Computed example of a mutant assay.
Amino acid sequence: MAEFTPDNIFNADKTGVFYKLLPEKTLEFKGIDCSGGKRSKETLTVMVCTNMSGSEKVEILVIGKSVHPMCFKNVKTLPTQY
């Protein structure tokens, strides 16, 4: 790492986004659970990447099998690469 500046060292990782999962707790009402019904397991897998200094952030990459996923049925554009 001594040969490179923080602007030239990048880190990327993939993570799952549970976009339909409701929270179990809330800060709105103390002591009241937000649970009920089945928990959604629908996820999107996304990859995030940035350099060590944080000056260059790569657009989020959505990883999936379908060109037009059903979860984005009425969405025209996304600020990501797919």
Results as ranks from 00 to 15, higher is better:
81 Q>D: 08
38 K>L: 13
64 G>K: 01
13 D>R: 05
34 C>R: 08
3 E>H: 14
14 K>W: 09
52 M>T: 03
24 E>S: 12
15 T>D: 03
39 R>M: 07
66 S>T: 10
36 G>M: 13
39 R>C: 08
76 K>F: 05
69 P>D: 00
32 I>W: 09
73 K>A: 03
11 N>K: 03
4 F>N: 09
41 K>R: 10
2 A>V: 10
3 E>M: 14
4 F>L: 15
24 E>K: 12
28 E>S: 14
4 F>V: 11
17 V>L: 09
35 S>Y: 06
79 P>A: 04
38 K>A: 08
20 K>A: 10
10 F>W: 15
21 L>S: 12
17 V>H: 01
2 A>I: 13
28 E>P: 03
69 P>A: 07
4 F>I: 07
6 P>E: 02
7 D>I: 04
26 T>N: 08
59 E>W: 05
47 M>G: 01
21 L>A: 15
63 I>L: 15
27 L>W: 10
22 L>V: 08
50 T>C: 15
81 Q>Y: 07
36 G>F: 04
30 K>Y: 06
37 G>F: 05
65 K>M: 06
47 M>H: 00
10 F>V: 02
8 N>Y: 14
24 E>G: 07
71 C>R: 04
46 V>M: 00
61 L>I: 09
2 A>Y: 11
82 Y>F: 13
1 M>Y: 11
68 H>M: 13
76 K>D: 04
21 L>C: 11
39 R>Q: 10
66 S>I: 06
43 T>N: 03
55 S>T: 15
61 L>D: 00
13 D>K: 05
23 P>R: 03
72 F>Q: 00
56 E>A: 11
31 G>I: 05
63 I>V: 15
6 P>Y: 01
51 N>P: 03
14 K>H: 12
57 K>R: 13
2 A>G: 13
72 F>I: 03
44 L>E: 01
69 P>M: 05
68 H>V: 13
21 L>F: 09
61 L>P: 01
43 T>S: 03
8 N>Q: 14
22 L>A: 13
19 Y>A: 02
73 K>C: 02
40 S>T: 08
72 F>A: 01
14 K>G: 11
81 Q>C: 10
63 I>A: 07
32 I>F: 07
20 K>Q: 11
